[in-house]
Design a protein around this nucleic acid. Structure first.
Length: 362
DNA sequence: CGGTTCAGTGAT
DNA sequence: ATCACTGAACCG
């Protein structure tokens, strides 16, 4: 599963860290605890307290029936790794490793549906019914567009463990453009490591800091106030690794706003999230992505042209095709040569299809 | 690209 | 009756 070349460096790092430390690993060479009789082997990395044998013996009584569990900390998928919050029914963070090769390919959304993650205990998972009619859209953390190389990876990205309730305009607009920007970085850098997730931040009210958030559906899925994205770019040839960290409000954000408005220091995000995101990264060799690369998202005109192009490609009738073409006029957009050619060839293709159809009915 | 909604169909 | 699945139409 992890034998793919592009995954190796990342996964090696993960496996080498806290994930698979057990009490046995940590203390067996120092104490005489029999791991066979020890029924709560999985503990956090910072288990130094248990190195004291007396305390460990005591813990065996205290945790006689097992240590309270919040489920596995790390969950592995073909193209992403995530930590899941069983209480909020959303991920805590979702990490991806992007290369040019895995953001392009034939995989598509057809016949792929959002569904509860079968790896999450049913009573702790979100369901489609929670989102339906809630007013919130299902926002990917590892986006479908990052998994174009593998239909299986794309299918897994639609598990609700990879999804948070997201404002629809934000999801299809600003956040979408941020995701496109990240994919675009693979043209400049060999690999991009991205960690995304939801935040529930306190708001000031009457001089007090109040945490307030909506929950949706029978499962009470938590609606985040903000979303974050950590973007680290690297190439073998480069001495520094450009890093950009962003905290974006979960609401509509128009084209007048630039990405840099939402940039924060990594430490700032770590403080509010309570998560150390890149513990093994030497922060001395980090540079500012927005100074190096600009952090410029697609402008309004280009963005509109982009999804009109997509609609032309997916048109299945001349009527629809011409309606989409009319959107150019409505929005006073100038199609480039590529679009004109695309329109003409698509029109011809559909002419033939519809002609065949009418012949069959005759 | 990112999504939702609604109508029709078939299975339990 | 209700749920799952699919396609068509819709939005920015």
């Amino acid at each position: 599963m992890f034998s793919k070349g592009f995954l190796t460096p990342f996964v090696t790092g993960v496996l080498g860290s806290a994930a698979f430390y057990t009490v046995f690993d940590k203390i067996s060479h120092k104490s005489r605890v029999d791991p066979e009789k020890f029924d709560f082997l999985k503990v956090p990395e910072d288990s130094s307290v248990l190195e004291d044998t007396k305390k460990l013996e005591q813990a065996r009584s205290i945790l006689k029936y097992g240590a309270p569990s919040q489920g596995p900390y790390l969950r592995f998928y073909e193209n992403h790794v995530l930590a899941y919050d069983q209480s909020k029914r959303t991920p805590i963070w979702v990490a991806e490793y992007l290369t040019k090769a895995n953001v392009e390919g034939p995989a598509n959304r057809k016949n792929v549906k959002f569904r509860p993650d079968p790896n999450v205990t049913v009573m702790y998972t979100a369901h489609n019914s929670d989102y339906l009619g809630s007013g919130w859209s299902r926002g990917h953390m590892s986006p479908a567009g990052d998994n174009k190389h593998s239909q299986e990876a794309m299918r897994e990205s639609f598990y609700l463990s990879n999804v948070v309730p997201q404002d629809l305009q934000n999801n299809g607009g600003f956040w979408n453009r941020l995701e496109m920007y990240c994919r675009d970085l693979t043209k400049t850098y060999q690999s991009i490591i991205i960690i995304s997730g939801p935040l529930i931040l306190p708001q000031e009210r009457n001089g007090k800091q109040i945490v307030e958030y909506e929950v949706i559906g029978k499962s009470q899925v938590s609606v985040p106030t903000h979303l974050f994205k950590v973007v680290l770019a690297e190439s073998d040839s480069m001495p520094t690794k450009p890093l950009g960290v962003f905290i974006v409000p979960n609401k509509p954000i128009g084209f007048e706003h630039s990405l840099t408005e939402f940039q924060v220091e990594l430490e700032e995000l770590e403080r509010v999230a309570g998560v150390t995101f890149l513990p093994k990264l030497d922060r001395k060799q980090v540079s500012d992505l927005c100074k190096v690369n600009g952090c410029k998202l697609m402008k309004k005109e280009k963005f509109q042209l982009y999804f009109i192009t997509r609609k032309i490609q997916s048109s299945r009738s001349i009527k629809h095709l011409d309606k989409v073409w009319g959107e150019l006029e409505e929005n006073k957009l100038q199609p480039d040569e590529y679009m004109v050619n695309l329109y003409n060839s698509k029109r011809e293709e559909l002419m033939n299809v519809e002609k065949d159809k009418s012949n069959v009915t005759k």
